[in-house]
Design a protein around this nucleic acid. Sequence first.
DNA 1: GTTTGTGAAACGATTCACAGCT
DNA 2: AGCTGTGAATCGTTTCACAAAC
Lengths: 207, 207
Amino acid sequence: MRKIADSTVRRLSLYLRFLEEFEGQGIETISSGALAGRGGTTSAQVRKDLSFFGSFGKRGLGYSVPELVQALRQILGLTRHYRVALIGAGKIGSALVQNRGFRRRGFDFVAIFDRDPAKVGQELGGVRVEDVRQLEASLGRNPADIAVLVTPPEEAQSVADRLVHLGIKSILNFAPLQLAVPADVTVKTVNLALELEALAYHLANPT
Amino acid sequence: MRKIADSTVRRLSLYLRFLEEFEGQGIETISSGALAGRGGTTSAQVRKDLSFFGSFGKRGLGYSVPELVQALRQILGLTRHYRVALIGAGKIGSALVQNRGFRRRGFDFVAIFDRDPAKVGQELGGVRVEDVRQLEASLGRNPADIAVLVTPPEEAQSVADRLVHLGIKSILNFAPLQLAVPADVTVKTVNLALELEALAYHLANPT
DNA sequence: GTTTGTGAAACGATTCACAGCT
DNA sequence: AGCTGTGAATCGTTTCACAAAC
């Protein structure tokens, strides 16, 4: 498969979200322009994004909403469920696990790890918190597809190394630092302080 | 000021983070190459990013760490504190407010709003939760610089409209939808489902 | 007449490469 | 000799524009 830009993949996710809305409203067919309008982009962008993966529309008509939903789910790999492991059961970690939306979209938290003995043994969102020292034992038995890393920054890299060693290929990282991983492992870092600083920049330098 | 790419601003934030680390270790001087290595980019990128704002280095020597820290704080607008209002005191909202790191970096949560009467009146991170109906009254009296929006998606747009009307120019949005705002308002959306889906895409389409 | 799919053009960001300073 | 600052070259993404399909 040809290399697809990250920005394209993100837009495809957005399109899927909007299409699901339209589907819920019983809309059968949609044009690239209408889909673009809902997502703040252009019709050409929508068509180009889709064209990397095939031809899904009918000229003169637009796209069948259910067909395009199906196609996007296929493209994005959302026709299956993913087993997600959470490392770090602090405030943000527990908020994530208890969020209904992720499960609904096929991301199932199946294991939770923490270093704090007070947290180990507790249940969060129906999953028992394990000691992070059990990471290898537990994920070795029941592997996860995706790891969500919410440890303090000083532990993040060493946990990431262990996850990589366990064969995990996808990490969602909330620790405010750049993780070093092999090329075949994908890391998405969510750095909230960075987002706030970008907002500060815009306040300090209004256009 | 010339238009600066978002990616550049984000890298400047990262550089600042690394420089603060170096400063803490008593390192006086750093080359673009060393700074780049720490942040997964290239020396040319570092120099180009900085060049948009001036010349901060000494040829043959590199950059003075404290001077560059100071310059970046100035550029990013981090020499002052920002008043942040939180709308939505659910799991994620309260996790954010109680996070020490934001205050340390100059982002002070000064007001919290929620719709749930059970939450109104409670304290979170030393701030009393107010009824979201008091948004105008409260922020009218004590304005905020930045709003962090963590409401359910169906309320997000109407709250955003009210924030815009109150004169807020910066919104950090956690609701999983595209907010419509005037051009002079900056919105950064953190969409965690989107990040997970991008990871799913990479699992489904390994390179 | 409408809307797609797609090469080509325009734009923007990154990388190169080197003159110029220390 | 070492490293910056920057114009030029390269690379990647977005927009344009139009032939082809319905």
